[in-house]
Design a protein around this nucleic acid. Structure first.
Length: 260
DNA sequence: ATGGTGGTTCGACCA
């Protein structure tokens, strides 16, 4: 038995519903972590997702953000916001407990706009809050997956042109250090675990033909707890959906796990 | 190229 999981920043679920349905048909994932729904819960395409065979747990927001966990088996929402800042009302985090000792978190880390900006400070603070939250999760034996758009390219291998991007947003030392902090806690980057040297990207700017010229960055990850990573079987970045008609600017990232 | 494209929403913002 295999548990197939996907993380995908869809850049509006209503604009991308057809692509999502095709992805679900083709990949038959058990768990899907979505980011940038860009809609309230009432506007979420509940019927279509249910018709595809999935339960949906989500945090919605008008115009911006919004995250969801889709699962074939019914889950239970453990948290619908990242603790640590009561003034933060952005829909960027949902933690769902699933049957069989699995747990799936969908996270949309702030972009940060520009190094040194207010949004950059918010991004670093969000990553600190995430670090605090994830520390507690490792104490349990739960098989935890944290899938999301981290908006950080971890190393220069994850960047098409490291010189141009050096020190820029998505690549600056402080944000890289913050995500490394998660790895130091014990979380594993499932894609890099199985493809140590691959230069593959998960996001390409819409502008200037970024995808056609492969000017990409790898900023979407499925991090796994050690107990989950013990069962890691496969991982991939699905380039194809990025080439579909009117695509998201992100590619889905897959991780497969053995289930006994 | 102080640009470029796309989503939301209808001017401006976010990415």
């Amino acid at each position: 038995m295999n548990l197939t999981t996907i993380t995908w920043n869809v850049n509006s679920i209503r604009s991308r519903l057809g692509h999502l349905q095709q992805l679900l048909r083709e990949q038959q994932p058990d768990v899907v972590m979505l980011q940038e729904l860009k809609c309230e819960a009432t506007e979420f395409p509940h019927l279509e997702i249910q018709a595809a065979g999935y339960h949906a747990a989500l945090v919605g927001q008008k115009t911006y953000n919004g995250v969801a966990v889709l699962s074939k088996q019914l889950g239970r929402v453990v948290a619908n916001a990242l603790p640590g800042d009561d003034s933060d009302t952005q829909a960027r985090f949902i933690d769902v407990e699933l049957p069989g000792g699995w747990r799936a978190i969908s996270v949309y880390v702030p972009n940060g706009q520009e190094v040194g900006s207010d949004k950059y400070a918010y991004k670093l603070n969000f990553l600190r809050r995430l670090h605090t939250y994830t520390q507690g999760l490792l104490a349990s034996e739960a098989k935890v997956l944290i899938g999301g758009d981290y908006n950080v390219a971890l190393t220069d291998v994850d960047v098409h042109d490291p010189k141009t991007w050096q020190g820029q947003i998505l690549c600056s030392p402080a944000e890289r250090q913050a995500v490394y902090g998660l790895l130091h806690q014990g979380w594993r980057d499932t894609y890099r675990q199985l493809h140590p040297d691959a230069h593959e990207y998960s996001w390409w700017d819409y502008r200037s033909g970024g995808f056609e010229r492969n000017l990409g960055l790898r900023i979407d990850y499925i991090l796994a707890s050690p107990t989950a990573c013990d069962r890691l079987q496969s991982s991939a970045i699905l380039r194809e959906p990025r080439g579909w008609d009117k695509p998201s600017d992100h590619a889905p990232v897959v991780a497969g796990f053995i289930v006994f």
